[in-house]
């Protein structure tokens, strides 16, 4: 009898198992030779983000991570950047679970005095064209500057840049719709709130965690 017309359950089961085994083999090979490029790409992305938000540094920034508790009980992961042994800034990672559609992950460069230097949103699932635009840093390309080279540095974003260098109020930054003074975008209130809240939590955690920071990294001056 031909295998095509076989209806014996055992034979069918063995056939399916063989096909699956073969596919697992293929996947094992592919995942074997892509493992290194994938982790390299991940590292490159991360390093690129750190270079954008921090001043020039030369230490191995991942050598030590401190977890700070923010007022809202978030765990904020802090790493220190040094140049010639001198502390030049911190990288702080905060995950806000209350985005419009899932978590908003924020990576902030923090000055040694605890103020925010620059903010990047590294992961978000906000509404395309609306909330997502608030989290994006992109040089605007038009038909008039198409051939010009990309300017160096971090592309501006007024929703993310508004906290830079400012002292955080005791209760954190609140968007103007809720009675505070932080910018918000009509129609993207939830995203605006998430950004202001994340920035506040990071700044407040640095204010609260001075002692921990100086113990771990040698001080906030």
């Amino acid at each position: 009898m031909k295998i095509r017309d076989n209806e014996n359950l055992v034979v069918l089961g063995i056939f399916l198992a063989l096909v699956s085994l073969l596919s697992a083999l293929v996947l094992a090979v592919v995942s074997g030779f892509t493992a290194r490029p994938i982790s390299a790409a991940k590292k490159a992305r991360e390093a690129q983000a750190l270079r954008q938000i921090l001043p020039e540094f030369d230490n191995d920034i991942n050598a030590k991570t401190l977890t700070l508790k923010s007022p809202a009980k978030w765990r904020i992961q802090v790493r220190a950047a040094r140049k010639n042994g001198k502390l030049v800034g911190y990288a702080a990672l905060a995950v806000n679970p209350a985005g419009y559609a899932g978590a908003v992950k924020m990576l902030a460069g923090v000055n040694p005095d605890g103020t925010i230097r620059a903010i990047l949103v590294t992961e978000q699932h906000e509404t395309p064209g609306l909330g997502a635009e608030l989290c994006k840093r992109q040089f605007s390309r038009t038909i008039f500057n198409l051939t010009e080279p990309t300017p160096a540095g971090l592309p501006p974003n007024r929703y993310l840049d508004q906290f830079n260098g400012r002292k955080v109020p005791a209760k954190g930054w609140v968007i103007s719709k809720d009675g505070g003074d932080a910018l918000y975008h009509t129609g993207a209130t939830v995203t605006s709130r998430a950004i202001a809240k994340s920035a506040s939590e990071i700044a407040l955690a640095f204010q609260k965690g001075r002692r921990q920071l100086s113990k771990a990294f040698g001080g906030v001056k």
């Binding site: 095509r4 017309d5 076989n6 209806e7 069918l12 056939f15 399916l16």
Partner: peptide, 10 residues
């Protein structure tokens, strides 16, 4: 060579 009965899963 795929048995007709299980072609979709395959």
């Amino acid at each position: 060579i795929v048995p007709r009965k299980i072609r979709i899963p395959v």
